[in-house]
Design a binder for these strands. Structure first.
Lengths: 143, 143
DNA sequence: GGCAGTCACTATCATTTTGCAAGTGACCCG
DNA sequence: CGGGTCACTTGCAAAATGATAGTGACTGCC
């Protein structure tokens, strides 16, 4: 798994941490305010043992953190860390793609609170502001 | 798996098609020009039966297409469809995230051919141009 | 104090998916 | 005809996933 500089690929690095369906859906639900175990379980329809494992993995990977929000009764919730929050835009981009290519029926969407308009996520190069794919790029490999 | 409008979630729709590690890495490699079976297999270090299954799944999902590029000997390569190409910016965003949060050591990167600068992928709202996460958003669910 | 109920899990086991290793068939080249 | 490459398939072991049942901490009610 390392010919052609694969070990140096940042995509691979990213996927090491969140490279599965449930993890991403958990992050999405936490963002929606479903931060407790039972909320996540019923919302996702996931088996409890699987959910436990995903939550540990995401915690281990530093995307979420278990935090006590009530002493009596002692209860915890799972909140996004900075790394977890930084991952959300990617979910929005995946959502935009899913809407475009698998979008039968009515789907939920995000609105910009200030403008009231539907958010249209696009990945751009921060340097040029141009959407990725509209300008020729070249890969550079480390020594 | 459908309380709280989960069936209407576009993220879920997207992940139905590419929600696993190998699929994404295959797309990335095809973009890099590794379009043939043996190239993909050796680059990724993936077992041949698994690669076959991923390639069928991605073909089925409409992200890649098998195309004959030589009659004698008869040889095919796997090329990205429009849907597949549209997914690449997401991989770049995942890469940027991976670099930021799991970026030990030297990693490969993309350069803008015209400016020579390192590409910095960011997900923005096409309406406002503002990076996702910098403005308050609200979810809207269908009826 | 005893009992039902909720929340957040763990344990057990069947099923599914993944992965390794070996083999197969089409073709080409000397 | 024989060796070599490419693109797979097959068979089987190992790992991950998923369904179901159970457990322990606690709370609120009578």
């Amino acid at each position: 798994m390392d010919k052609n500089n694969l070990g140096t690929c940042p995509v691979d690095r990213g996927l090491m941490r969140v490279g599965d369906r449930w993890s991403m859906l958990v992050l999405r639900d936490i963002e929606r305010g479903l931060t407790r175990y039972e909320q996540l379980r019923t919302s996702l329809g996931i088996a409890p043992n699987i959910l436990s494992r995903r939550l540990s993995a995401l915690t281990e990977a530093g995307l979420i953190a278990k935090t006590r929000y009530s002493q009596r009764p002692p209860r915890d919730e799972y909140l996004l860390t900075d790394a977890g929050r930084d991952f959300l835009p990617i979910l929005m981009a995946i959502g935009a793609w899913g809407r475009k290519y698998n979008g039968g029926g009515a789907l939920s969407q995000h609105l910009d609170v200030a403008t009231g308009e539907v958010v249209r996520p696009v990945v751009v190069d921060a340097n040029t502001g141009a959407p990725i794919g509209t300008r020729p790029l070249r890969m550079e490999y480390p020594d």
